[in-house]
């Protein structure tokens, strides 16, 4: 009998050795998060990504799984972020006529807004006494994860702290865009989408696709351009 119980207790440990366990866990949390989000009446301040992540973290902690091992298994999911980023080129192309009509505002807004997104955060943290390592982790906070990881490493920041900052930035950017667009009486989906992608990277872009295809395309554009621009400029600025 104790043998059976022992084998039973070993289940999480044995199963978690295979990536399929991490995949099952992540997928379950994804659907559970979406379900809970719908049940809560779709609150803007508590998006599905946060709900899912909290549940997933709780399960990992309760089963006392090794986080690094989970991460290795979940690589089967995270590697898809590469082709998914490429996939954003398709709505971009489908909305190209909208983007052509807007190229002047975009060319003027992007360098300024993308620079300020980094400058505001770094200046505030610096004024409050944050260390250079923390500053380097906060600088790419509006950049999509795969690019931001590269920037943080180049600047000498901490990747986990950067990922945390990225998550919070994405969530509050989506919230602030909704609030401020209402307050400023902006109902142009192109502007809202662009602001979501520029400030809120993939989380903002996911939110923009909930609004409409056009908003999503402009978010993809904002996210892509911000990523490229920040990756090129930030290492130069940080050296000063």
């Amino acid at each position: 009998m104790t043998e059976l119980a022992g084998r039973f207790m070993a289940i999480p440990d044995v199963l978690s050795a295979s990536p399929i366990f991490a995949i099952g866990l992540t997928l379950s949390a994804f659907f559970a998060g979406n379900w809970l989000f719908a049940r809560l009446g779709k609150p803007l301040w508590m998006p599905p990504v946060v709900l899912s992540a909290v549940m997933l973290a709780a399960v990992i902690a309760v089963l006392s799984l090794d986080y690094v091992r989970y991460q290795e298994g979940a690589l089967w999911i995270t590697v898809l972020l590469g082709p998914a980023t490429v996939a954003l080129g398709i709505p971009l192309y489908q909305q190209i006529h909208h983007i052509r009509a807007m190229w002047k505002p975009i060319v003027v807004t992007l360098p300024l807004a993308a620079t300020m997104a980094a400058v505001y955060a770094v200046v505030i943290a610096w004024a409050m006494g944050a260390t250079p390592e923390v500053l380097a982790s906060l600088a790419p906070k509006s950049v999509t994860a795969p690019i931001a990881i590269g920037i943080t490493e180049q600047l000498g920041g901490s990747v986990p702290l950067m990922m945390g900052g990225l998550l919070i930035t994405g969530v509050v950017a989506a919230l602030f865009v909704d609030l401020l667009a209402q307050w400023l009486k902006i109902d142009d989906e192109r502007i809202v989408g662009f602001a979501l992608g520029l400030n809120g990277h993939a989380i903002g872009t996911a939110r923009a696709f909930e609004i409409s295809h056009t908003a999503g395309a402009f978010a993809s554009l904002g996210m892509g351009l911000t990523g490229v621009f920040t990756a090129l400029i930030l290492p130069l600025v940080f050296r000063l």
């Binding site: 992540t26 999911i77 995270t78 972020l81 998914a84 945390g164 989380i203």
Partner: peptide
Amino acid sequence: LVLLIMPGVVGVFF
């Protein structure tokens, strides 16, 4: 897209 960024996001808690 949200599913794909989730494993990275969970790292914050650890």
